[in-house]
């Protein structure tokens, strides 16, 4: 049982909550609810929604496939090179999206570092849906890696060590011990990456362009609709907010579900400690 927070702290707590929530309430108040079905069923809106979902699933899949191994490696890495690798991994996270887009453009664009050679082989990425997926994966993968790495660092190494002592190969340990234990963290890290990809705007605009059904995702459609029909932009914003709530909320629910079915984190920690007996625990010191 935690000690209760001092009562005065509720003042900034309330201010913080208001600060974050009031703008969303503003959207709800200004929204022309009556026109909502009509606004959302416009072909341009449907195209944007469908494109956003398809590209986000693709980019999140890439993030998981490439980000998981990177997180595993970073969690164990020590020393200066690991620190450098960690900073480089985090960089797309803190870069302004336009910079990310420019970076992709000068790398994968027609005259880019790699794009020029690709172009010679007839492969051109710019203005295609692939460019959207690349832009989304580039900016969202770091979120997955950082979230997973954090979870990996705090998880006890007891089970893994026990399995290894009992003769399991590294692949077997990864498949049967590390990854199952990582489940809840992976779910929330994936949701974070998905949500970030869903909101991706600047890099897409800079690198992929904007064409209905091909590269114009929901955020780009909202930006464009704002030019002529602010109501429509608001309606689409609500869709984006709703999707984000589903993704982030769903991941939280999933995490809690898996934790309770495994006996909760405290239970797991206790069991983990028991497994430590007789096994040198590498993470014990940290």
């Amino acid at each position: 049982m935690r000690t209760p927070l001092p009562r005065w702290l509720w003042l900034p707590v309330g201010a913080a909550l208001l600060f974050l929530v009031v703008p969303l309430v503003g959207v709800g108040v200004r929204l022309p609810w009556g026109r909502l079905p009509e606004l959302l069923s416009a072909q341009a809106s449907l195209d944007a929604l469908s494109l956003s979902l398809r590209t986000c699933f693709a980019s999140t899949a890439i993030s998981v496939l490439l980000g998981c191994p990177l997180a595993l490696a970073l969690a164990r890495a020590r020393g200066a090179w690991a620190a450098v690798a960690r900073v480089l991994t985090m960089l797309p996270m803190v870069l302004p999206p336009v910079v990310a887009g420019l970076a992709l453009l000068v790398t994968l664009g027609r005259r880019g570092l790699l794009g020029a050679s690709l172009s010679a082989f007839g492969v051109e990425i710019g203005f295609t849906t692939v460019a959207v997926v690349i832009a989304q994966a580039f900016v969202s993968m770091p979120y997955l890696v950082i979230a997973l790495e954090g979870a990996l660092r705090t998880s006890p190494a007891g089970f893994e060590s026990a399995a290894a002592v009992l003769g399991a190969t590294p692949t077997y340990v990864l498949r049967r011990v590390t990854l199952p234990l990582l489940g809840p963290a992976l779910a929330s890290a994936t949701a974070l990456a998905f949500a970030r990809a869903l909101g991706e705007f600047g890099a897409t605009l800079t690198f992929a362009g904007s064409l209905q059904g091909t590269t114009r995702t929901l955020p780009l459609e909202i930006y464009l609709q704002r030019e002529t029909d602010p109501d429509s932009a608001l309606a689409l914003s609500v869709v984006l907010i709703g999707l984000a709530i589903v993704v982030v909320g769903g991941a939280g629910w999933l995490t809690r579900l898996t934790q309770t079915s495994e006996g909760g984190p405290s239970e797991r920690r206790r069991r983990g400690r028991r497994a430590d007996v007789g096994v040198p625990d590498r993470a014990g010191a940290s």
Partner: peptide, 21 residues
């Protein structure tokens, strides 16, 4: 039949000066 419809004319120009378009 454009490959992209940009929001700003400067974005159109950017796509051309970068050689993308």
């Amino acid at each position: 039949q454009p490959v992209s419809e940009e929001q700003k004319v400067t974005d159109v120009l950017g796509k051309v000066t970068s050689g993308e378009a």
